[in-house]
Amino acid sequence: MSALSDQLVTYAILAYLVAMISHAVEYALGNARAVPAKAAAPARELVGAGVGGVGGTVDEPAAPAVTRPGRSGARAELAGRVAGWLTALAVALHLGALVTRGIAAERMPWGNMYEFVLTVTWIGSAAWLAVLVKRPQLRRLGLFLTLVMVLLLAFAELKLYVQVTPLMPALQSYWFIIHVSTIVFASGIFLLGVVPATAYLLRSGWEQGRRSFPYTLAKRLPGAAGLERLTFTLHAFAFPIFTFAVIAGAIWAEAAWGRAWGWDPKETWAFISWVVYAGYLHARATPSMKRSVATWISILGFATMLMNLFGVNFFFTGLHSYAGV
């Protein structure tokens, strides 16, 4: 089982990689907006019910439709669809890897950093599929998403891989499942949130007439306002879950270590992330604050999440060090 899981991870990475290339082809060929509204809808069958729930009531403003149905447009459309299906395939393989890993370990597959990254990335890309089904016109963001997936999974595979082991006594608690599943879930959504956030920053620069390097990437992205709203929706969805996860962690810590909050490095960084994301929500709710500033804060928030996930495990020792590499 565990060997099967490892294989599936490799195949999933390959599938993300091919999806990424396919997205890149779409991007290179494509004139924006040749995508009919329901183009990616068939992906729905594959996505299944479990990944719904992103409160994705994001309205895409009617973007300047530059429909130029030429041959390259049709090809771009095809490449985009293929990319969507490949992503769905990758998500399915990825899920297979998680399930087999869990079966091999006879527990939830969140016992160490390798498994943690595997799960977070899966949540991120599954939620992406859900967004894609609801808002097919955002499909081009898939290029960024698959890139992130390939990088993170390859990193996990090369640097974090560990053999399957059972849990140590400190982790044998139902709070483990509650705390970790919610942390993983929230992290996955935050991870996904980075994609429209980055895309928004690029795109709004482009829309303001910037034509230098990073902004040119945004030439064919969906409109900035919609990206910004998607960013907010994802963060507003993930933040309460993250809050709950931190509280669950405190309840568990009280039972396991005898104190609810002890400023262990992991706790400290969870606090920092929480405060930064709260700052994002405040900044966004302040009309006098620029949306781009708020969006930067959300990206900073994710940087602190990454710091917590990787940095703390590598650089500091704390009670959480069981998550060891």
């Binding site: 920092i272 405060v275 700052g279 405040h282 302040t286 604050m289 602190t304």
Partner: peptide, 8 residues
């Protein structure tokens, strides 16, 4: 906002 940021 500034105070939140400082706290972090």
């Amino acid at each position: 906002l500034v105070l939140l940021f400082l706290l972090a």
